[in-house]
Amino acid sequence: MEDTLSSSSLLPHIDLTKDPKALEPGTPQWEATSRDIRQALETYGCFLVDYDSVSRELREAMFEEMESLFALPAETKRKAAEGLPRTSVVLPGQDPDAYAPLHQVLTTVGVQEPEVAQALTELLWPDGNDKFRQALQSMSKKMGELALALKKIIFQSYGLNKYCDSHSDTTETNFNMTRYSAPMNNEPTDRLCEHIDSSFITILCENDVDGLLTKSSKGQWHQVILSNNTFIVLAGFLIRAWSNGRLHACPHKVIVRGYKARQSCALFLRAKGDQIVETPRELVDEDHPLRFKPFRYQDFRQYSVAHRFAEDSLDKFAGV
């Protein structure tokens, strides 16, 4: 791995802050952005994106409130997960054989909605915590808006924007807050083993502790360093299946060092559990024969979890 490690400066970088027309369908800026994103995902399976709708103040508030979240007693977090539908928590040491044994994570669906954010906050802090609720709701909402805009751009890049609205009806967003413990030395230490997300796309931001590495379609690892205004977008298994293998589902892992915990929050755009994932007929032709059979997302999700989201999971589960 050390022989092929490169800096994130080599990864494609999309700036959505310079020109608001970059997110306006039909403009030359939109067309250029669409082309650049498609090329990035085909080769790297990821790209860095500057997006100023999420302010530095909101990022700082989100990570500050995550510190409060992870400092709560384990039983409090466990009861909150049990009390809110489609919410789960992983605690350190909960599964020593897991591919990330020394991290904790709380994940849930729908927290961009005020009532869901309020319900989760009340379960965690019965006396209330408005700062956490507001940061959680705002961050998940703005990251969700970015995810939907990027999905629309990707569809457009293949001339398939007519499918975008119907596709949105079958997808949902999952918000994930993660803390990786510090190794308390300067030796590189694995905190999350190599895997691919079972999503269409994942949008990730982090605190000031770097550690994410991504692998391109050519097998080269890139160390990711994010600035205050930058997210990384990762292609998952589902968009690889949807694109008939044209887009590279991005393997990634987390390696940290030092004395400060790494925190990240991620938004996963994924299919609803009972939805069928399949390749549009327009992406199948003589030069690109069908690579994946249609499959129900929930079934694939269970398979990929059991196989720790290994790089060959999609091919083994749904390959033609």
Rank of each mutant, 00 (worst) to 15 (best):
T178S: 13
Y163R: 02
T173E: 10
E145W: 01
G159T: 08
S181M: 13
E145G: 10
G159P: 12
A182R: 07
T178I: 15
G159S: 10
S166G: 14
M143C: 09
L148G: 02
S166K: 13
L146N: 02
S168Q: 13
D165H: 10
Y180L: 07
K151W: 02
L160V: 03
T173C: 11
T173R: 05
Y158E: 08
E145V: 01
T178W: 01
A182T: 06
Q156V: 00
I153Y: 00
F175R: 09
A149V: 01
S166Q: 15
H167E: 13
I153K: 07
N174D: 06
M184K: 14
N161C: 05
N186A: 00
R179F: 04
T178E: 05
D169V: 10
Y158T: 02
K142F: 04
N174Y: 10
C164M: 15
L146Q: 01
F155R: 00
S157F: 04
Y163S: 04
K141N: 08
L146A: 03
A147G: 08
Y180P: 04
S181T: 12
D165F: 03
S181P: 03
L146E: 02
L148T: 07
N161I: 10
G159F: 12
G144I: 06
L148D: 08
L148I: 09
I153F: 01
K152L: 00
D169I: 08
S181R: 10
M143E: 10
K162D: 14
A147K: 02
N174V: 11
Y163N: 05
M177E: 12
S181Y: 11
E145M: 05
N176A: 11
A149I: 03
L160Q: 04
Q156A: 15
P183T: 13
M177W: 04
E145N: 06
T171A: 06
P183D: 09
F175E: 05
C164K: 09
S168K: 12
E172T: 09
G144C: 05
T171R: 03
S181G: 09
T178H: 01
D165K: 14
Q156M: 00
L160T: 05
I154V: 15
P183F: 11
G159M: 11
Y180V: 06
A149N: 15
N161G: 09
